[in-house]
Design a protein around this nucleic acid. Structure first.
Lengths: 218, 218
DNA sequence: GCACAAGTGGAGGAAACCCACCACTTCCGT
DNA sequence: ACGGAAGTGGTGGGTTTCCTCCACTTGTGC
């Protein structure tokens, strides 16, 4: 259990650590968050024990592997907020996040999962997620203000959309890797302001958060 | 490997078989298609070996457990076709199938999976599925003819919808068991005929079928 | 009731996976 | 160039899950 404040790693160890992270990124992207450790170790050309030494549990490896991608996720929200057209920003962001999911099975899993705050390794991950979520709230508000997004759209509808998209990707990846696009376009059209039909109430945010925490741990 | 044409089971064995099927239905509904065999055996108050003897592989147990439900699935399509209003029939069917998914995690898994035709035990299952699909084609045609369903709706959009719904259910079951309803209503509104925006092309049916076969075997 | 086929479940093998130990190797400050 | 700290991976223990053997029990036809 090594925290960053400890003495820096020896150069060979640092090299191995980087190789593990790179291997994990590829392995997670291809097979999702539950790849066996020995698969990652093999790709990194490293003993399984070394992986366990550097990353005592799966969560810390996930945190290391997805730091960058999670940052890109948060950045995408900030950029969408800066888009000249509110509706384009909204749609572009949704498409972009879904595309990130479809390009990386591990990331798709990650977005429908929250880690227990107990683990310090994943704090940064959750921080990025929250940053992105705050920008997302603004994206939604702006698109409604522009009169393009239906007023009864709820920001948490994105969370459910991501869960749905993860389901489509899990089933079609490999065979029909673009199937999700059509599904997302249907939803975007349904989100447009020219809808007045009523909808069932969204689930309380509390329960959605709990659902994210409860979902099948990798 | 006992086929139905063999001599009938002894009465105690038949009783055990029924107990196993009943236990499997409950266990699958609660935990999905991957419940360990010993969990089912325990619920049926039967040895694990007995489960394996009666159902040599998971598929045959699944086939036995979901025969009725799959028939209900096919019947729902026939009933929707008989509904007085084409659009009500369409929407009602989609809602009903999704509700079946949400009430039974195993069934949700089942609908996004196809078994290799090799296994005779599951032939009936696939037969029901195909019957339902043929009626579904008619439901779609009728709703389009009534001018209520958008012309570029593709019947296979339902398959993707079911995959998406499975994703929502997998993530929210337990905490927000009705979250899927809002997602489905969004989609139904997008399916309505008053949409002219273009959509990405649906994936070729071939690839979707292969995707169903490839998906994470339970 | 009796004999025997049919049925049963406990015990244990095999595979996949996670993880810890520890004898050996490699780096790095002096 | 050397000694000790840091790092390494093979080996093996533990767990979970699937599945098979086999000695024992229980229906059922006579």
């Amino acid at each position: 259990m090594r925290t960053p404040s400890d003495r820096p790693l020896r150069t060979d160890a640092a090299r191995n650590r980087a190789a593990i992270v790179a291997a994990a990124q590829r392995a997670f992207a291809e097979h999702g968050l539950r790849v066996p450790f020995d698969e990652i170790a093999r790709r990194a050309e490293v003993g399984e024990a070394t992986v366990h030494r550097r990353f005592p549990d799966r969560e810390s490896l996930i945190a290391a592997a997805f730091g960058d991608k999670m940052r890109a996720y948060a950045d995408a929200a900030a950029e969408a907020l800066a888009a000249p057209d509110a509706w384009q920003g909204f749609c572009g962001y949704v498409r972009r996040v879904c595309a990130m999911q479809s390009g990386d099975r591990g990331f798709a899993d990650l977005l429908t999962i929250t880690f227990a705050a107990a683990n310090p390794a994943v704090e940064d991950l959750e921080h990025q997620r929250n940053t992105g979520y705050r920008d997302w709230l603004k994206i939604v508000r702006r698109a409604k203000a522009a009169g393009r997004l239906r007023p009864d759209f709820h920001p948490d509808d994105l969370v459910v959309l991501l869960m749905a998209n993860a389901g489509v990707i899990a089933a079609t990846a490999g065979e029909a890797p673009d199937a999700w696009r059509r599904h997302v376009e249907y939803l975007l059209q349904a989100f447009a302001a020219d809808h007045t039909e009523t909808l069932p109430a969204p689930p309380p945010r509390e329960t959605l958060v709990r659902a994210l925490q409860r979902t099948q741990r990798p």
